[in-house]
Design a protein around this nucleic acid. Structure first.
Lengths: 229, 229
DNA sequence: CGTGCGTTTGAGTGAATTCAACGGCTGTGG
DNA sequence: CCACAGCCGTTGAATTCACTCAAACGCACG
């Protein structure tokens, strides 16, 4: 659940996390992070793998997945350009990460970051603060998964993506319907039906299946009871 | 989702967290934490309240709740004797906390803990590690809420409580059925039906409504696909 | 022009919910 | 000591929302 947007990270006085700044996440720690490319659906790391690295999406999008033995899948989070992930692991990754689209990713050794934390407590405290934030988001997602209707989940998702995207009211979704369904704890059919229903109501427009236009944000917001500040 | 059991905390080389040791959580930081009593259903802190304290359950049990405007409720976690909670908040609490039973709770100023972290990076790194662990648990709960059946949720819950309790196969549940339902994203009726169904199968015994005996642990474990290590 | 993938749409099913009633325990007051 | 009220938990019946199964559509690509 760690998806530090550049703007969030800007509040952290440890350097430039911003994706558009010259300094990448890795350089903050004085480490030239390796820059890797992943094609669509390529695995960045697997569940159970030792968590030796922390990652930042430079270009593209990444999803984290949990798989059950009978094939049921859950998508824990989506990470977009600028987002940092992989620090939420303990010694081993509790889930796998895969490229949603062709992506470019920077890695930094986890030990390097932990070393900086151990040296500079203030930095560590900032990380802690971030971790707390992401724990809160995890709680919001639990409420969504436990108690919200299909329509509430989908509108929640759209508003979340809109908040993370550059343009407030026009979304280009990098992920397919199956990914969205597994993220929201629904089936692909329910996601599809809910979206077309919203379109028929006039609340959104779907010029292309991966492109969503928020026509009536107030209506969307009234559907999903976002308590969180 | 931070529920550090005494045994978990024992791995942290910053002092004695253990509930049964002489040193309370607070004393680790050289601060005499205030010791408060809460009666059943009393509020420990409210959603939105500034998060100035970190708490440790000395006696009793605590639940954290999120409420939606139409009354739907979600229980984020249960904290039992020895567990620490409240650190998972940012500046303000994202959920409320209430005593499940009459409870005794120690508080420590959050700032004191953050100060220790800022001073001693190693301590902070340990806290970070803990936060990562709890983020992983949050992900496991999301998988449960998103993808598991009622029966899987209930068996998951029973095994979790068994793991946290002293006796491996006999549970005394401090919380009512409604709390369990809101924790698992089910209704009270479904929880009740699932439990009696498990009892009829012979997998568990229910000598009293709050007392559960695990008769066939293997059967329970086979029902819930615990991937997590 | 077909093939394959992703998405939509339809019909029927089902697991969990809602609505409703009942049973059992506890504490209180007559 | 019993009657009663108030919770809490269980059980039953009917409903519903999302799911499963199935088919068709549209688009990109060879």
């Amino acid at each position: 659940m760690l998806h530090w947007k550049a703007d969030t990270a800007a509040a952290i006085p440890i350097g430039a996390f911003a994706e558009n700044s010259s300094g990448s996440f890795g350089e903050v720690f004085g480490i030239a992070g390796a820059r890797l490319r992943f094609e669509r659906n390529a695995e960045v790391f697997a569940e159970g793998e030792p968590a030796d690295y922390v990652y930042q999406v430079v270009r593209g999008a990444v999803r984290t997945c949990k798989l059950m033995s009978d094939g049921r899948r859950h998508v824990g989070a989506f990470y977009l350009a600028g987002d940092v992930f992989g620090l939420e692991a303990g010694e081993a990754h509790g889930f796998s990460a895969e490229a949603v689209t062709a992506s470019e990713i920077v890695l930094v050794r986890r030990s390097a970051i932990l070393a900086v934390c151990a040296r500079d407590g203030a930095v560590a405290a900032q990380f802690l603060e971030q971790a707390a934030l992401h724990l809160q988001r995890a709680h919001d997602r639990m409420l969504l998964l436990a108690r919200k209707s299909a329509q509430e989940r989908v509108t929640d998702f759209l508003l979340e993506m809109a908040a993370r995207s550059a343009h407030a009211s026009s979304l280009e979704l990098p992920m397919c319907r199956q990914d969205i369904a597994d993220y929201l704890g629904l089936t692909i059919e329910t996601v599809s039906r809910t979206l077309t229903s919203l379109e028929r109501q006039g609340t959104i427009g779907i010029p292309a299946s991966r492109r969503i236009v928020l026509r009536d944000r107030a209506a969307l917001e009234s559907m999903n009871d976002r308590i969180a500040a």
